[in-house]
Nucleic acid binder design. Structure first.
Lengths: 344, 344
DNA sequence: CTGTTAGCGCATTCAT
DNA sequence: ATGAATGCGCTAACAG
């Protein structure tokens, strides 16, 4: 019951059990090559003293740190929170701890986090690159000499495998869906066009528009509620207001819905709305919102599994080109796109 | 540019710089008591070799691990995700890493996580106790001998400080608000009544009802969408259907809204709705939802700050009684309670 | 201002 | 089946 200001050590156990430190070490590492009696006696002492092997000492001896680290833009963002949950689950199953650091998509913060993580000798890295073509990042990561898997966004010019969703196809298909509805002036709305995912989605939208010989309208100024409001005010009040809107990420979708409602713009009658990322109330809003749903949990789970697989391999890199896993998305058709008018 | 399979060590630096290890150690620890020339020369070598002090070795020497750990029910839950974000921010400002483990509110999982954390010699703990009166947990935490702050839920029979919100008062005030509206049959709906927060909120609701000499109706069977649907079906179809509902947590509020809408029950005309925890779309739903808003980010931030303060103190415990910080909540009045009928 | 040395707690030879 | 000794990388005396 005493609080151990000086946690018992392996040799404390050895002394009290009347054996050598080697024996205790064997006991806590599976108990092989130890006689049954000794084993139970040592175990009893371990129990009694509340001994827990000091992980720092093990790391120093060259063992795994038993930690993996997740480097993400934000924890509060539902998207990354779900990824983190999945990753934590896998880590736990592998008897490892999860360290989470956040970058806010700032390359400098990202570097700093990584530098700290090196010092802690974490076993593997799951990173969502702030800049998907940063050579600095690619170089730093390689010098770290530990397995790295990129999540949600690949890292160009690097040998690291990545797990992403099919952004291009999803956006193209979503746009096609709107085109098939007969909409003529489809606006693509979002923010942070420098992000890989957004970039890909814009490409998908553009391709679909081009294939339909329609003119692309892209506005990447919607970064938060206020800017979304300004953007929509301009578009809806213009000479040629859009008759459909494709939003490129979760926040934008919700903000767009809110602004349209505030402006008393009828959806989908006046403008249709198709969003990116499903959300809990999407089906309960009036109208319910049609969205592209990403397999978020799988994204995190698969990346984590790949990371542990990579950590288990003897050879760090076999010079292969970076493997890229692309997960399918789903178009959840509801009412805001003009389908299923019952709910509109 | 070479990937360091064998990261350079302090003595590698010392050798290459032609100095002793102590000098290098001094350099990486602030550079005091080192001549300017030596300093810059050593720094150059450090840079050249890409040397990063091995944190494991430092821990072994008795230094701080520079990690704090957060033990929460879930990361995906927006409430805890926000807490985590705040905690991470504070940790980073203190040059520490954040380890996150999840319990699913399961005491066994909680214990296991804690055991692992001890081995890693984490500097401090932020825990959301699965069971707020567990003696096992209180005992284990004390034996860990490191600073602990409880988050969102206190830990009874323990000396640990806690940061929580005013659950009792918030629920009482919310209920009063409903009573002031003239509602007579107010239902209190939730799940997991064994949790401290829920327990307190039920107390608050009960008190308000008692003070108004009204009969309390409590249903704690709403754990997910399905059970919420069943519960509401029974209540709304009963002889004395409620004319107002107080939901006790985020998920329940949203699910209740969805079910009521599915049942085509008019809110607030037929039943008023007052929920716990604000959410992004609360003001955009029809009707907009009146909620109790908790200072979630502050909860995490303050707890983390208190933790670092405790870690800085020399004496672990001065035998004081557990300090308890109770943060104020806010009742965000919108339309679903019957106020502001414009939005209904 | 600088270097030598001991030892943190553990796993691991290598003996016995 | 067991133990004694060595060293992982670093910091903190303690000299000089």
């Amino acid at each position: 019951m005493t609080s151990f200001s000086n946690p018992p050590t392996l040799s404390d156990v050895a002394r009290k059990a009347g054996v050598g430190t080697t024996t205790v070490s064997r006991v806590i590492n599976g108990g092989q090559r130890v006689s049954p009696e000794t084993l139970s006696r040592v175990q009893a002492v371990i129990e009694e003293l509340g001994f827990r092997p000091n992980q720092a000492a093990r790391i120093l001896k060259g063992n795994r740190a038993k930690t993996i680290s997740l480097v993400i833009p934000s924890i509060a963002d539902p998207f990354f929170a779900q990824c983190a949950e999945a990753v934590q689950e896998v880590a736990r199953a592998q008897d490892s701890l999860l360290i989470v650091t956040v970058t806010n998509n700032d390359p400098r913060t990202e570097i700093e986090n990584l530098e700290t993580l090196v010092q802690h000798r974490t076993d593997g890295l799951l990173v969502v690159p702030a800049n998907h073509q940063s050579l600095t990042l690619a170089g730093l990561l390689q010098r770290m000499g530990i397995p790295v898997i990129c999540l949600d966004r690949p890292l160009e010019n690097s040998p690291f495998a990545s797990v992403v969703t099919k952004n291009f196809q999803a956006a193209r298909d979503a746009t096609k869906h709107l085109i098939d509805h007969g909409y003529k002036r489809i606006l693509c709305l979002g923010g942070e066009s420098n992000l890989y995912t957004i970039h890909e989605r814009i490409r998908g939208y553009s391709r679909a528009m081009k294939d339909a010989k329609m003119v692309a309208r892209i506005d990447m100024s919607a970064k938060d509620y206020k800017s979304t409001e300004q953007a929509l005010e301009a578009h809806m009040g213009g000479a040629q207001p859009p008759d459909a809107i494709l939003t490129l990420k979760n926040g934008t979708t919700i903000e767009t819905f809110e602004v349209l409602q505030k402006f008393r713009v009828s959806v989908p009658k006046q403008v249709a709305l198709l969003g990116y990322d499903d959300f809990e109330l999407a089906s309960s809003l009036r109208p319910s919102i049609t969205v592209v749903q990403q397999p978020i949990f799988d994204l995190g789970r698969i990346a984590a599994e790949m990371l542990f697989a990579a950590m288990a391999e003897p050879a760090p890199k076999t010079g292969k080109t970076a493997e890229q896993v692309k997960l399918d998305t789903r178009l959840i058709v509801r009412s805001s796109c003009g389908c299923n008018p019952r709910g509109a």
